[in-house]
Every structure is written in structure tokens, then in C-alpha cells.
Amino acid sequence: MKISSKAVVCMILVLLIVMGLIFMMSYFKFQTTLATLIQNRLTVISITMGESIESAIDLGLGLGEMRTAEAVIARAKRNDPGIASIQIFDNNGQILYSTQKGRAGINVPPYVLQALEESDGRAWRLDRGNSFVNGVTLLNSFDQMIGGIVLTYSKDVYNTKVAALTNSLTRKSILIFVGFAILAFIGIKLGFRGLGRYTDSIESSYERVQEGGDNVCTIDVAGLSAAASAEAMICKDDFDEKLCTIKDNLSEATKDMHELERTVLKTPAGAAQPDV
């Protein structure tokens, strides 16, 4: 592989890594932003429901005696199709009202009670893999906890949007990458043109000097930058002279060896000579 091709590969690799990292950061940022937006909205819904129920409690009703509770959670679910279920539970975790039939009377999952216990504020939130779970603590007029509301939101919409971003951004990133990779390729090929001419001219000069003849060495440093051409280690006069000297040295060494053979061993001249 030529040096220019290696430089192209390196540049493309660096470009790929940079774009990959930016892509990755954008992807994670989108996930976080969207999840925060959705969960904030769910918190708004939970708190509104909580306030509505607490105002009824303030009137003296027990949590299990509210006729409007079912209607409140049903309306909230109706207004947002992404909501999978809403449940109101008491202090022991027993579900009192639910948008899912047959759930009343059974207990909420343990992670809900755990989140409720660990939360600093009134509202809390969880990311359960395939759903967002939001909730609020229900307090009576003495600020004592009497239960809570838990809202489960399916991640389908969220996943669809993340997939949409991934697909669209991947396609566009590939296009941008290919475009700039081509630009880098052209730039490097142009940038290495001078160096290529320089090394090729060294090779052709070598071949011409070997074939014989004077003033055939033409090393091209014109394509190099001023600093590079000044520092080029192999230059015209020097190279020409050295190659001729090497040629002479080789002939001399070969001649001496033949002479030694001839004089001592009486070997006739013109015996097999190495092709140097």
C-alpha cells in the first residue's frame, strides 16, 4: 500500500471515530432529553391527579371511599394514549383504584414501594426498561402519607422516536462521512503528489544511471514544499555521483576477485561473473 493510501486510511479512521463519538453523544443526549420530557409530563399528570384526590381527602373522605377517584384516573388515561395504567394504592401498597380491571385489591409491585420510600420529594420516577413509572405520594391534611398514585407509561412512543432518530441520523451521518472521506481522499492524493514524483524520479534516475550515460539523473524536488526540498536527503548531484561510485566499486571488487582467481588458480579470464 502506498503512503498516500495509508494516510487516507488513517484520516478516514480518525474521521469515523470522531463522527462515531458525536453520533453516540447525540444519541445519548436525545434519549436523556426525551425521557426527561416524557417523565416531566407524567409528573405533571401525577401531581394534578394527586392534588385532585387530596382536595377530596381534605373534605373528610377516606382514600377508599372516593367515588370520583376512578373517574379521575380514567380521564387522565384517556387524555394520554401512551399511559398504560394508573393505580391508586394505600399505605400498605394495596391497590384501591386502577384503570386495569381486576387489579383492585392486589398489591403494587415491591419496586413501587421501594421508590416511594427512597424518594426525597413528593414525586418520584423510575425507568423500568420497557416502561416509565411515575408516582406521587398522597398526603392528608396533616401531611401524613396515606398512599400513592403510580402511573405506568409504555415506552413504545419513546422507542419509536429514538429509533426514528437513530435511522435518520445514521443515514445522514453516513452521507456526511462519505462526502468528507472523498474530500480527504482528494486532498491527500493532491498533497502527496509531490512526494510521489520525488520518489519516482529517484527510481527512474537509478535505472538510467544503471543503464549508463552521463547527466541522466533528474531528481524532481519541485513538487515538495520549500522546506522539504531543502532537506531532501537524496538530491540530484549527490545521488548521481554516489550511484556511479557504487557501480565503480562493484566492478572493482568483481575485477579483483577474478584477478585473484586467474592468478592463483590459473582460471581463464571471462569466467562466470556475478551480475551486479
Binding site: L15, I22, K172, I176, F180
Partner: peptide, 9 residues
Amino acid sequence: VLCLSSLVL
């Protein structure tokens, strides 16, 4: 190349 591609992306 890197700055421009990052800007476009």
C-alpha cells in the same frame, strides 16, 4: 475535514 464534518453533523 474534522471541523466541517462535525459542524454539518
